[in-house]
Amino acid sequence: MNFVALDFETANHRRESVCEIGIAIVQDGIVREQKSWLVRPRDNWFNSMNTRIHGIDATKVADAPEFDELWQSVSGYFEGANVIAHNASFDLSVLRHVLAQYELPFPELSYACSLQVARRAWRGFPSYGLSALSQRFGISLNHHAAGSDAEACAHIMLRAMEAHSLSHFGDIEEAFGLRIGKLYTQGYIPAGRIRPEKKKKPSLHSMPLDLSRVSKSHPLYGKTVVFTGSLRSMSRAEAQKSVIEAGGHSSNYVNERTHYLVLSERVFLNIEQGINNNKVQQARRLTSGGNGVTLISEKEFLNLLQHEVSGGS
């Protein structure tokens, strides 16, 4: 069981804005070493929200090397390696983007996501975030310090493998139904679920609407609602249908007419870790420009939806 756990911290919303790299090296099932490096992003621009999360700003990396210089000494850890990260889709995307920015070739590596593994290794936990899992398993963590995050990620993966009696990195696919991702010179294959063929989800247009109880007193009446992420309580189409039946409007796009952006649990947790998808970024841009978009959780949306009304319009 040999692998390298990886964590990136970024200066702003751009994936290539690396400001810190952390790794933990696992050999024969034991965390042998932890390393981290500060990195100066090419434009050295830091978003204040990112700085609040990891504590790094432009002054702290002023004398640090840029990524292309640092990569000369760290690339050897990744070439031909098995790599893991907690929410690997983010960290591997950061790696691809920053390599592309400096026109550097991709290393040849295999990778897996410890977040996806944890969700299948231990069913029913309230949270699978790095902080929550570290606290549950007594793993030391200085959250959002890249080296500490990488080491915690390594320990979580090792515990999951031990819990399911796995001894090789490649066992992840069969044991957890997860495809191991690949990065190679010409491109990449994303890690993810090995899915059986799924039935087509019902669309909003295929569902009958009941507008008999539309009321102007409903809090969603006249409001435009956008959803991001997969809801636990209902499908996207069912959620859109419920908004329309409450007298509101449903859209797939965040713009000046949007009143509410409903966040799935996963999107909400990602925001806490500083990961904002395109809809969240657009909502925040509009809010800073004076067009208020209210971000609400799935639970808050359900509370609005179940609001008692005084009767028809």
Rank of each mutant, 00 (worst) to 15 (best):
L70H: 10
R120S: 08
S114Y: 00
F8P: 02
A154P: 00
A121R: 03
K182W: 09
S148V: 02
K223A: 09
Y102F: 15
F125I: 04
S36Y: 10
V225S: 04
R96P: 02
P196D: 13
S230D: 10
V74G: 09
Q282D: 10
H307L: 05
K200D: 08
I56W: 02
V39I: 15
A62W: 06
E265H: 14
T59D: 13
S288G: 10
S250K: 09
R257V: 07
E308M: 08
G247T: 09
E79D: 07
D7R: 03
V254M: 06
Y184D: 09
H143Y: 09
A160T: 00
M157F: 09
R123C: 09
W122K: 07
M157S: 00
Q282Y: 11
Q135H: 14
V254N: 03
N142F: 08
F67D: 06
N47H: 11
D7A: 12
R179S: 07
S48C: 02
A5V: 05
V267D: 03
I244H: 04
S134G: 13
G292T: 14
H259D: 15
D149H: 04
L104G: 03
K200C: 06
L231H: 04
E9H: 03
A163I: 01
L263M: 11
Y111C: 07
L109M: 15
E9V: 01
E265K: 15
I189K: 14
S288W: 07
S264T: 10
A5F: 07
G290R: 06
G312M: 12
R232I: 08
I25A: 08
V214L: 11
E162R: 11
H155K: 13
Q34D: 07
Y221S: 05
P190Q: 13
A88T: 05
L302W: 10
S230T: 15
V98A: 04
G311F: 14
S48A: 10
N87D: 10
R213N: 12
F176Y: 15
H54C: 03
S235C: 08
L130D: 04
E20G: 01
Q306M: 12
I84A: 03
G292N: 13
C113Y: 06
P107Q: 09
S215N: 05
S212R: 13
E33F: 08
S233E: 07
Q101L: 15
D7L: 02
H259C: 06
